[in-house]
């Protein structure tokens, strides 16, 4: 007799509902395994996105018992007793069943001003290890978009999507801003048009990150402090006026000249 109830949201743009599936539990399975068994036995038309089954491709993001998680990394034996609810990511428009349209993220990716190094010096670029290490954490991102999904700024307020990059792209902005060879200054852009001020640092992005990137502490708050340097701090503003410095150093500005 089936001992497991999987309560899965089935539907598309026309609407949908939670459907219960009874199935036997098997030792050592993750949620994605059970979804695959359901596809093989009871629901061949159940749509779900997956690829690596190893927590590295970021494809199988969903909400398991209401929390954003990777289906391939969520062990069945670690979930509580009772029906297990699987729903698609809430923040993005539904395509079908557990598959959502995440193109919002690709639009925001296009808006990130690219890495802009100075002209190649003789002998090539040189970076010290301590500078390389700083951005390594941000490179771990697998683009599962669970941080974007859980962020209430767009999850509960659709209208903010127009000008809100979201946690995934804040770590990209932070990585570029901390890059010693980059010459772009994105502080005003990220403050004014990418919605940095909308983030109220409630740290849900950090809580759900499967790569354990300290998104808030190491990317968003440093970006906010940089925005304070560039825009809000009156002493920094006065210092720039007195020294006649632009927000970019002379060396950085010079690097942009042809």
């Amino acid at each position: 007799m089936a001992d497991l109830t999987m309560r899965i949201w089935r539907g598309d743009q026309d609407g949908g509902e939670l459907v219960d599936y009874e199935i036997d539990s098997q030792e050592g399975e993750v949620v994605l395994d059970v979804i695959h068994r359901l596809q093989a036995t009871q629901a061949p038309d159940l749509a779900c996105r997956w690829n690596c089954k190893a927590g590295k491709c970021g494809s199988c993001s969903a909400e398991i018992n209401g929390m954003p998680r990777l289906m391939c990394m969520t062990r069945m034996d670690q979930l509580p007793e009772g029906p297990i609810t699987i729903t698609p990511m809430r923040t993005f428009p539904i395509i079908r069943d557990l598959v959502t349209d995440v193109s919002f993220n690709f639009e925001m990716a296009k808006r990130v001003p690219a890495f802009n190094p100075p002209a190649m010096p003789e002998g090539g670029y040189r970076m010290q290890q301590i500078d390389v290490e700083r951005g390594q954490e941000f490179r771990k991102c697998i683009e599962c978009f669970m941080c974007q999904n859980v962020c209430h700024v767009i999850r509960d307020h659709e209208e903010n999507k127009v000008n809100y990059a979201g946690p995934r792209f804040f770590i990209r902005y932070a990585e570029l801003e901390m890059h010693p060879l980059d010459t772009n200054d994105r502080r005003e852009l990220v403050r004014e048009k990418m919605g940095l001020g909308l983030c109220n640092i409630t740290k849900c992005c950090t809580e759900v990150c499967p790569e354990h990137i300290k998104i808030t502490d190491n990317a968003i708050i440093p970006l906010k402090e940089r925005a304070v340097d560039a825009h809000y701090d009156p002493v920094a503003w006065l210092g720039r006026k007195i020294t006649r410095r632009t927000k970019r150093s002379a060396a950085e500005a010079a690097a942009d000249r042809p």
Binding site: Q13, N65, G66, T91, F92, L98, K161, N184
Partner: peptide
């Protein structure tokens, strides 16, 4: 700080979201 405007398109708002309309499923 150049953003390549040619590649930027408007974010499409709206579209039905998946999952039941409840405050949380946690």
């Amino acid at each position: 700080m150049a953003v390549d405007d040619a590649t930027i398109t408007e974010v499409q708002l709206g579209g039905r979201r998946g999952g039941p309309d409840v405050a949380t499923l946690r």
